[in-house]
């Protein structure tokens, strides 16, 4: 932190100022001229929170994607299908058992198992041939999307989250002062905050797993130099299968979490595939912290685009990607 300030004093000041303005915009009661310029404060705060929670959801999806890529150089374009598969399985289980958490666990485990199957049956047979592996994942995603459409049809499904996650929480943020002087506080759905908490939890968990455990050390070593890791006596295939399981499982987990926050329908697989792609391109392939930054950026861009320039929202996401590629082709946190 200190070295960053010393090396990039100018940028540290810019970031500091932006943070200060941002905090002021969140907590202060807006003066009239600001309301005239960009609309009500409630819209702004809600958009901001929506963006952050969406970023959290994107992080859940993209972290698995980036983890798999970092270790295996395999762009798994069936990742979106895994998200959707997790959502459907979770829905079926939750519907049958009445327990949302059971649905979440089964979705995680079954999609993780499907990931292991994919790794063992297909990717192991064409190791080192990146392009072919990627093409295979495209084929799988076509077939998977069609089979899921056949089983679950085109209907939109909606989860029932547990009771205590229902409803709205009052946040300590004043939106406007009434003429009587009473403050009106911002309200926000509890479930969305839970999504954010889950994303932060998964992020910290992944960080601890990668940086503080022996297996995590092996995975990091594999990211840096796969051959040397294999030469030093580690069963690389086992590590690969494990990472694929975690990556796929996280997609399934995100499917249930995201399917509850929004809804499940055919086509969502493409949406989350796009999100994962852009997030990891922006954040840097193979970097979990990069995925977190990228997810936050893209989530915010999408929600602000939707709220403030509805018909050009996607352009904002696209612009972020282009600017990052132009300035830092390897992504914000990506290393070469």
């Amino acid at each position: 932190m200190r070295s960053f300030i010393e090396r990039h004093t100018f940028w540290a000041i810019v970031i500091g100022l932006m943070l200060a303005v941002g905090l002021w915009m969140i907590f202060a009661v807006w003066p009239d001229w600001l309301v005239d310029a960009i609309g009500r404060k409630k819209t702004f705060v809600n958009t901001l929170l929506n963006g952050i929670t969406l970023g959290g959801l994107y992080f859940l999806v993209a972290s698995g994607f980036t983890l798999v890529f970092g270790l295996m150089r395999n762009v798994n374009l069936a990742h979106g299908s895994m998200y959707l598969l997790g959502a459907y399985i979770g829905y079926e289980v939750a519907d049958a058992s009445g327990s949302w958490f059971l649905g979440l666990a089964v979705a995680f485990l079954s999609v993780a198992a499907s990931g292991v199957l994919l790794q063992v049956l297909i990717f192991r047979r064409m190791e080192g041939d990146d392009l072919r592996q990627t093409l295979v994942t495209i084929g799988i995603s076509i077939v998977a999307a069609d089979i899921m459409l056949a089983i679950w049809t085109g209907t939109t499904y909606q989860f029932q989250p547990p009771e205590w996650l229902f409803g709205a929480a009052t946040l300590p943020i004043v939106s406007v002062l009434k003429s009587s002087g009473d403050a009106v506080f911002v309200k926000y759905p509890v479930y969305r905050l839970a999504v954010l908490a889950a994303a932060v939890g998964v992020g910290i968990g992944l960080w601890l797993f990668l940086n503080r455990t022996r297996i995590g050390m092996m995975i990091r070593a594999g990211v840096n130099d796969r051959e040397m890791l294999a030469a030093s006596g580690v069963n690389v295939q086992l590590v690969f299968a494990l990472v694929f399981a975690i990556g796929a499982g996280l997609a399934g987990f995100a499917g249930v979490v995201g399917g509850t926050a929004l809804s499940i329908a055919p086509g969502e697989d493409i949406r989350y595939l796009l999100a994962s792609l852009v997030v990891v391109i922006v954040g840097g392939l193979g970097s979990v912290s990069g995925a977190a930054i990228g997810a936050l950026l893209i989530g915010l861009a999408e929600q602000f685009g939707l709220a403030y320039f509805p018909t050009y929202g996607v352009v904002l996401t696209f612009l972020i990607m282009v600017v990052v590629l132009a300035v830092r082709p390897q992504g914000i946190m990506g290393g070469r």
Binding site: L131, L274, F318
Partner: peptide, 29 residues
């Protein structure tokens, strides 16, 4: 945009562009 990176990245970037274009024409009236 795409040639700044190589190999497997090209497929990802062009796929992202294709999907973004699809969503863009769908929401832009």
């Amino acid at each position: 945009i795409a040639v700044r990176t190589e190999g497997i990245y090209t497929i990802m970037i062009t796929l992202a562009i294709a999907v973004a274009f699809f969503y863009f024409v769908r929401q832009n009236y």
